[in-house]
Nucleic acid binder design. Structure first.
Lengths: 342, 342
DNA sequence: GCGCGCCATGTTAGCGGTAACAGGGGCGGA
DNA sequence: TCCGCCCCTGTTACCGCTAACATGGCGCGC
């Protein structure tokens, strides 16, 4: 293909309109499939646009029409595996709505979140999907101050700004504790990340402790790590915990990846899982499906959460008026092979 | 915080200018830190903006200034682990340049890629970073037709449009073949994905076969899978391959994740890795660091590629004129514990 | 005391589209 | 034959911000 337009000036509607002999308005109508245009004109315009290699300028279009087909999606991390899953579901759900997700990553930093949010709002998106309920005051203010739909996802333990779609991590931890106790384990340890800003992991641990307390049990020991490969950390921390506390009969991990590391450690050291020691993680990562033993876990409903959040934004941006819904999903406990059956 | 502005009309520069008693231009200058403004005025404006909860409209700003601080990053997938890594490096590198990455995902579909590219170009970004060298004709045309920097990443085996940063997957496969043969393996199988659009995996396999051929060896057997959890697929396919062809002494996997599945299978079935059978993958995923045996692999330089691509875009958008560079990284073979040492 | 220059601020004219309304021509019904 | 309506196309006035230039006031040197 040649490059027909080589003047310094970038292509505009006017170029297409001159090339096809109609007004800019008509070209605009053709390119957006809006309003009545005769077939002959339409074809002529399309041909001219294609020949020139014209790409519409959405910046100008958005300014004029006060409409932006973008949805801001703000998440803590992409290397976590849980967020890409949410994201792809959002993306799929938005596919036919004319809306498009734009991702911002905060690295679990509230300040970064505020900054990313500011940046995104300045593009006037049609909606915001943001992970978690904890934000800086300024971020909350921005979200309250805007009149586009806001959906906070993943977590329902707390007060939302507008709509909320997620699970109760507190209760997820609590239920896991109950299941573990029901299976007869009593010396229970915990391994998780040190990140103070991972509120969902924190809530799970709190709920977990609460569940133990209800049965009159306290957490026997805990290890917190930060950085590094989760799998390797799971292995290391498990070793450290078991060396320090050889009579542990269960370890609860803050996510499946560390849990898998722990599982590998136990197998390598001939520990009988789940009889000698039980293990459980969190998330239901299908990534781990190939392991010899399936780790006990709890599905975080990541896919469903993404879809629902996208639906809410899509409906609202089409004029739907429902506002401030809170939708709680029910995570399902999967015992797998690492909790002994009663 | 209250919500002081509750008229139906959204906030504009004018609101801030009226609230602070200066012209819109001065407000604009303050908010962008550009031009001389007295400290007193600056403070007054900032206070007014903050009180109102004003968020600038980048759409209007971009239109007026013909400047957009966005870099389009177009990749095939987020669930692959390799792209999030590239992405976070791009993000880090762009951090202090005022540029911001915007991600588009193509799901390995050329048509989707074309569509995503069109959408992104219509926002007039300052640069494009796009995975791979294979695009539809229309996509190539769009990229040729634009005068913003374009960097194609991951792969250097082919002709680039503008700049190219990557590795030669063909040579990566070839070198792996050489290393495997040098270690004395002779009955060599392959397991990979069925995706015809994953050109890089294809090129690795081609190079691999070429390497084998140089030593007078042909691929003994191969399996191709699609969909599902890579780990589980690795396990299944390995079983299938070994059942069909029990005298295989090596399996080369198209990526680390399937390779890890294969490794798990071998360990579970008491196969002596690397003596009885050797294994190798591709990518250097640190995700797998916690395995008992480290899988032989080849680092794809994902981090470095991301950084370099971002650098090129950043420099070019600052006026740098270098154009059409091709930067080839050298992937490093890591023997790990699954290829026997000579 | 006057003019020069400079700092701080204001004015004007778009950026490239689109909403809303304005025509013009052909065709059917009266 | 003439009117009215509908289909198609054009005109006008912004959308919210910024580049570029204009301006006003004040300090300073001679």
């Amino acid at each position: 293909m040649t490059r027909p337009h080589d003047l310094r000036r970038p292509l505009t509607l006017r170029d297409v309109s001159e090339a096809s002999g109609v007004s800019e308005m008509t070209v605009s109508r053709v390119l957006r499939n809006r309003g009545d245009v005769s077939d002959a004109t339409r074809e002529r315009v399309l041909k001219a646009a294609k020949t020139l290699g014209y790409v519409p300028n959405k910046i100008a279009g958005a300014l004029a029409s006060q409409r932006v087909n973008l949805v801001a999606v703000i998440i803590p991390s992409l290397s976590n595996l849980v967020f890409p899953k949410v994201l792809s579901n959002i993306s799929d759900e938005l596919e036919d709505t004319g809306l498009q997700p734009v991702v911002g990553v905060t690295n679990y930093s509230p300040e970064k979140e505020e900054q990313v949010l500011y940046e995104m709002l300045s593009w006037r998106p049609s909606g915001v999907i943001i992970a978690g309920l904890e934000h800086t005051d300024a971020a909350r203010a921005m979200l309250l101050n805007t009149d586009i739909p806001v959906v906070e996802i993943m977590d329902v333990d707390g007060e939302g700004i507008d709509s909320v779609v997620g699970i109760s991590h507190r209760r997820a931890g609590l239920h896991m504790a109950e299941a573990i106790i029901a299976a007869g384990y009593r010396q229970i340890g915990f391994i998780g990340t040190k990140m103070p800003e991972d509120h969902r992991a924190r809530k799970r641990l709190e709920g977990f402790k609460e569940g133990l307390a209800k049965a009159g049990i306290a957490l026997a020991d805990a290890e917190f790590y930060s950085g590094g490969s989760a799998l390797a950390k799971g292995r290391e921390m498990t070793e450290a915990l078991l060396k320090r506390n050889p009579n542990l009969d269960f370890i609860y991990y803050s996510n499946d990846m560390v849990g898998a590391g722990g599982l590998l450690y136990c197998r390598d050291h001939g520990l009988d899982v789940p009889n000698q020691i039980g293990l459980a993680g969190f998330n239901g990562l299908d990534l781990l499906d190939g392991f010899s033993q399936r780790l006990a876990t709890m599905d975080a409903c990541r896919g469903k959460i993404g879809r629902k959040a996208a639906q809410i934004v899509a409906e609202r941006s089409q004029g739907g008026q429902a506002t401030g819904e809170v939708i709680e999903m029910e995570p399902v406990l999967q015992l797998g092979d690492t909790i002994r059956k009663p």
